[in-house]
Computed example of a mutant assay.
Amino acid sequence: MTTKHLAIALFAALAVSACSQGDTPAEHSSADRAEGHTSSSAGLPAGHIAVGEKLASDKKLSATGQACVDCHGAEGNAPVDGLTPKLAGQYHDYIAHSLQMYRDGDREHSLMSNQAKGLNDQQIADLAAYFGSREGKLHDLHNVH
């Protein structure tokens, strides 16, 4: 077997192994998603929308004493200013990855780094599931000429 064939075989084995471990989308049926469970490419546990909704208003969750909705607005649709992003309707994986990066120091922001510092993986998954499930008022460049 050549080195090239060995590399391909190794890559295939790793891919199969990665897909067979953990929380794959196939393990979450449409009934699970309807109950507010999400799976994540961020390596997080399933997120729960109802729990995330409570966490989004919890002022004791962070070191700053502010809740997510204090800055991002009700359901993540009414930010306090033009610099604060809308979270509603955003991909839950994007929110999860962002919160992980703020928590772990891989992404810096004067407020968000402190907000996320005390979050555990389940809380991040729940917040991401909640904000990602809200009807968003985000606009993209689709059909913009």
Results as ranks from 00 to 15, higher is better:
21 Q>T: 12
88 A>L: 09
86 K>Y: 07
64 T>F: 04
112 M>L: 05
29 S>M: 02
63 A>E: 14
37 H>Y: 14
32 D>V: 03
58 D>H: 10
80 V>T: 14
41 S>G: 10
142 H>Y: 08
116 A>V: 10
87 L>M: 10
69 V>N: 00
42 A>F: 01
52 G>Q: 00
84 T>G: 03
63 A>K: 13
13 A>Q: 12
114 N>A: 13
11 F>G: 11
90 Q>N: 01
79 P>R: 02
94 Y>G: 07
108 E>I: 07
145 H>I: 13
80 V>L: 09
89 G>E: 04
79 P>C: 03
140 D>C: 07
78 A>V: 12
44 L>I: 08
69 V>E: 00
18 A>Y: 15
80 V>H: 08
11 F>C: 11
29 S>L: 02
6 L>T: 11
119 L>V: 07
61 L>P: 08
51 V>Q: 13
2 T>E: 06
11 F>K: 07
136 G>D: 00
115 Q>P: 05
121 D>I: 10
11 F>L: 15
122 Q>S: 09
97 H>P: 01
64 T>C: 03
45 P>C: 00
141 L>Q: 09
73 G>D: 07
75 E>C: 06
113 S>T: 15
27 E>M: 01
15 A>P: 09
69 V>D: 00
142 H>W: 04
43 G>H: 13
63 A>H: 10
48 H>V: 08
116 A>P: 09
144 V>K: 05
119 L>Q: 07
133 S>A: 04
46 A>M: 10
3 T>I: 14
15 A>W: 13
64 T>A: 04
110 S>N: 14
25 P>C: 00
111 L>F: 13
12 A>L: 14
70 D>G: 07
66 Q>L: 09
6 L>W: 08
87 L>Y: 04
50 A>Y: 00
132 G>A: 00
